[in-house]
């Protein structure tokens, strides 16, 4: 078991209604998971709990069968292994140029410059960003920002990659590129979990589909099984 959620409850301070209610989920290594559900069902919150950004108000999150520790050193280690790509890449890009932004996470790990340089060059090449290495982040297109946000996380070589609405704002061509990119990432041994509204993408791409509704998991199965239950999906507002 890579990561598991046991009876998780989470309530935002400004919202009296819990966002996640008694949610339990297990993610095993090597698979491609898709999380679907209406807006506000708790997908983003689930991802932020997995990355240790939020602490559940009830229940336990386990990484490698060990309960998460919310102490700083433990969180650094966790975030190196559990990468989270935000829905809006603007919220994740912090440095001035593409190259600098890629190096940010590696610098936080305290790696030597020679290794940082090697990994940055490799990642620039893998994500077709070499020509943009010295380009200012502020002038990138949204598609390029998205690609950079994924590269920023992948450079840390996480074991689990969480993608929050990766196809949002992307045109069909960029979605195709993203799909190819994800195939390569998975081939390198990374487990992928994606929250999305793009049901066509899910149907073709995922190994396992998790359906969420009002802070709970209401169904999980193979795409064929999930999408065969059209009536159920319709009641969830997902058809």
């Amino acid at each position: 078991m890579l990561i598991s959620f046991e009876q998780i409850n989470y309530t935002y301070p400004c919202n009296p209604k819990p966002t996640l209610r008694e949610l339990s989920l297990e993610i095993t290594a090597g698979k491609r998971y898709a999380v679907i559900g209406q807006n506000g069902c708790g997908k983003t919150t689930l991802f932020r709990l997995a990355n240790g950004l939020y602490q559940p108000s009830g229940g336990t999150v386990r990484w490698n069968n060990q309960p998460l520790s919310y102490r700083r050193p433990a969180l650094y280690q966790l975030r190196q292994q559990v990468g989270l790509v935000f829905q809006n890449p603007e919220e994740q890009l912090v440095a001035a140029t593409v190259e600098e932004d890629l190096s940010y996470g590696l610098c936080n790990l305290g790696l030597p410059d020679s290794e940082i340089e090697q990994r940055v060059q490799q990642t620039l090449k893998a994500f077709e960003l070499t020509d943009l290495a010295d380009f200012p982040v502020n002038y990138l297109s949204l598609g390029q920002k998205k690609r950079l946000a994924i590269a920023d996380i992948m450079i840390l070589r996480p074991r689990l990659l969480l993608l929050d609405e990766p196809t949002a704002y992307l045109d069909p061509g960029q979605v195709r590129n993203l799909r190819q990119m994800l195939t390569t990432i998975q081939a390198e041994g990374t487990t992928l979990v994606m929250a999305t509204h793009d049901l066509n993408f899910v149907q073709d791409w995922a190994d396992w589909v998790i359906v969420m509704n009002q802070g709970q998991i209401v169904m999980e199965d193979t795409p064929t099984a999930v999408f065969s239950r059209q009536h159920f999906l319709k009641t969830m507002g997902l058809s």
Partner: peptide, 10 residues
């Protein structure tokens, strides 16, 4: 959100 983004990247 940017603070969370920074935290998520260590």
């Amino acid at each position: 959100q940017l603070s969370l983004g920074l935290a998520a990247r260590g």
